[in-house]
Design a protein around this nucleic acid. Structure first.
Length: 558
RNA sequence: AGUCCGAUGGUGUAAUGGCAGCACAGGAGAUUCUGAUUCUCCUUGUCUAGGUUCGAAUCCUAGUCGGACUACCA
């Protein structure tokens, strides 16, 4: 538990008090993504918040596609969003909605607004609108048609709707206050002309509502009670309230803003993620290095780990930059309990047991998961010639090195004690083979005489080993805070050139049979997931989710 | 520059006028058939200055710093 069990974040407190005071009798939230990209871990925070609140208060949470801009949205994204929300473990039940389903109703409300004298058609060009808008110091100037009659506006909006104007020739604006210190209240544009086919409504419409106009209405139509969004919409709230009040909605939704998630060594904007994909810097939205939910799923992250992480970072109103170590901790913690162990050698060197009979093979019993007795055991083939990690042998080592070095005895995991006798090298001085002798009495890994070894290393039998691709991932960026770039650098300059290192690994035979998507631990090296896309039968490709903590590497680095 | 929002260890957060706590990270040690896990202990914090109060992280004022906004994007 990262917080005391009684802790309530500020949104829970708002809801508590709404319920206690009788202002609300139920809780309805919504997660409203625009289908113009894949969901990322920042969205996961919002999903957990909104669906979590609904669960906690026995209300409901709607999944709503905020598809008001036909130029940017695609069905591919709609499908991926649904999949990601489900995968995270949430269920919207019957409550799937699309902003585009409300276009007729929104249009009718725009007509109402005009009749109320609270909206008008403006024929200024985009540049003129900007110019008339004023700035912090100067009040804006009224559009020439600001005081047109209701009839004139109705007629003009009708012509807009019928497509009689070209794109950009006219917009519908709310009539509020051109002198407001809040720019969003200086007669914001609420409808624009777009003669583009919409992924859902096709060519039915050529006028489309703007976010500021559409969003409060969507919430109101669905009887949303608490409309939770990110901090940058704080300035939009007065318009949100103005609109619903102007149109006379009862029991209006309340907009509440919270701080979006930022992660070290990670970009979190859809625009940047899209660029990484389009520029081919990653293999796609689901590249395992991407902070997208689909990328993290492929990388081996679990829904539980993501949910736990979202709980850990909390919900506040101030911007922060969460350490990616928090995320890594969440996934290690989950995977440690749940993933079966296997032996895999990522950087192999041969180990020959000189006193083990040539040609002999035996099967040793290995425990699948020490954290979970129910996971059972498996057999691992053993023979005279093994493969071990190159880093587990050192010709000249100090006393702190617990692995193979001439004269030192170590345990082969689930196997025997072996004592290092030396090594052979090639002409260049590279170690080609490590040699040792074994103690037959230590079969299974324990010495009858009670003697201890300091180190245990993993291994595979060379003749029995499978050969697979292992993709060793590291952080995508080499810079900590991508919202603050070093002088003169583009964010792309900060990509980590070593974010992917694909190696051929030698693995115990049981590993060849795992199905795509399976998460395992490679003992002593890390958690891996059989890639869901590139794995073939008997030929899995493993993605490293995260390394195991390595206090030896830390020590040795000192 | 204006308006709005925010500020608690290295990081993320709790304490809602009454002992500044938790997690991560870092350090030391114990345990261990993974130098993992687990366990124990430790380092480190209320932006500044005033005020209110018996008592302030909390309330007030001013300042400082950070963020958002000035799209026919969401």
């Amino acid at each position: 538990m990262s917080e005391s069990p009684t802790h309530r974040h500020f949104i829970q407190q708002i809801i508590d008090s709404d319920l206690a005071a009788g202002r609300r009798t139920s809780v309805v939230t919504r997660f409203p993504p625009e289908p113009n990209g894949y969901l990322h871990v920042g969205h996961a925070k919002s999903i957990c918040l909104n669906f979590g609140l609904a669960l906690e208060f026995q209300g409901r949470c709607h999944l709503r596609m905020d598809d008001t801009n036909p130029a940017k949205e695609e069905t591919e994204y709609v499908e991926s969003i649904k999949e990601d929300v489900r995968w995270l473990g949430f269920d919207w039940g019957e409550h799937y909605y699309q902003a585009s389903d409300y276009f007729a109703r929104m249009h009718a409300d725009a007509v109402r607004l005009i009749r109320l004298g609270k909206a008008y058609v403006c024929f200024l060009s985009q540049d003129q609108i900007r110019e008339f808008h004023g700035d912090e110091k100067r009040a804006g100037k009224a559009s020439p048609t600001r005081d047109a009659t209701v009839e004139e506006n109705l007629a003009a909006f009708e012509k807009m709707t019928r497509g009689e104007y070209d794109e950009g020739k006219a917009v519908l604006r709310a009539k509020i206050d051109m002198a407001s210190p809040n720019m969003h209240l200086r007669d914001p544009v609420i409808y624009r002309i777009r003669k583009t086919s919409h992924h859902n409504t096709g060519d039915q419409w050529c006028v489309y509502p703007m976010y500021d106009y559409a969003h409060p209405l969507e919430d109101a139509y669905e009887s949303v009670t608490h409309s939770i969004c990110t901090l940058e919409f704080e300035v939009h709230r007065p318009f949100y309230d103005w609109l619903l009040s102007a149109l006379g909605f009862e029991g209006r939704p309340q907009q509440i803003e919270f701080a979006r998630l930022n992660l070290t060594y990670t970009v979190m904007s859809k625009r940047r993620l899209l660029e990484l994909v389009q520029e081919g810097r990653v293999s796609g939205w689901d590249d395992p290095r991407m902070p997208t939910i689909s990328g993290m799923r492929r990388r081996g992250y679990t829904p539980a780990a993501l949910r736990k992480f979202c709980e850990t970072v909390g919900v506040t109103k101030h911007n922060s930059l969460s350490d990616v170590a928090l995320l890594e901790h969440a996934v290690r913690d989950d995977l440690n309990r749940t993933s079966p162990r296997f032996m895999a050698v990522l950087d192999p060197v041969r180990l020959v047991i000189e006193n083990y009979p040539e040609g002999q093979t035996e099967e040793l019993q290995a425990v699948n998961n020490p954290e979970d007795p129910a996971a059972g055991t498996r057999k691992v083939p053993f023979s005279r010639t093994l493969l071990i990690e190159r880093a587990d042998f050192l010709e000249n080592a100090d006393k702190k090195f617990f692995r193979l070095t001439p004269g030192q005895e170590v345990r082969l995991r689930w196997g025997y004690f072996v004592k290092c006798t030396g090594c052979r090298k090639d002409a260049a001085g590279n170690v080609t083979e490590v040699t040792c002798t074994y103690d037959p009495a230590t079969r299974g890994g324990d010495a009858p005489d009670g003697r201890k070894v300091k180190g245990t290393i993993h291994w595979v039998s060379e003749a029995h080993a499978g050969d697979v691709e292992a993709r060793l991932y590291d952080r995508l960026f080499a810079h900590e805070d991508l919202n603050h770039l070093p002088e003169g650098k583009d964010w792309r300059d900060l990509l980590n050139p070593a974010s992917l290192n694909a190696v051929r690994a030698k693995v115990e035979p049981a590993l060849l049979a795992v199905s795509p998507g399976t998460r395992v631990q490679f003992e002593r090296t890390g958690y891996f997931c059989a890639d869901a896309k590139d794995s073939k039968p008997e030929q899995p490709v493993f993605n490293r989710t995260v390394t195991l903590k390595d206090s030896w590497a830390k020590q040795a680095g000192k």
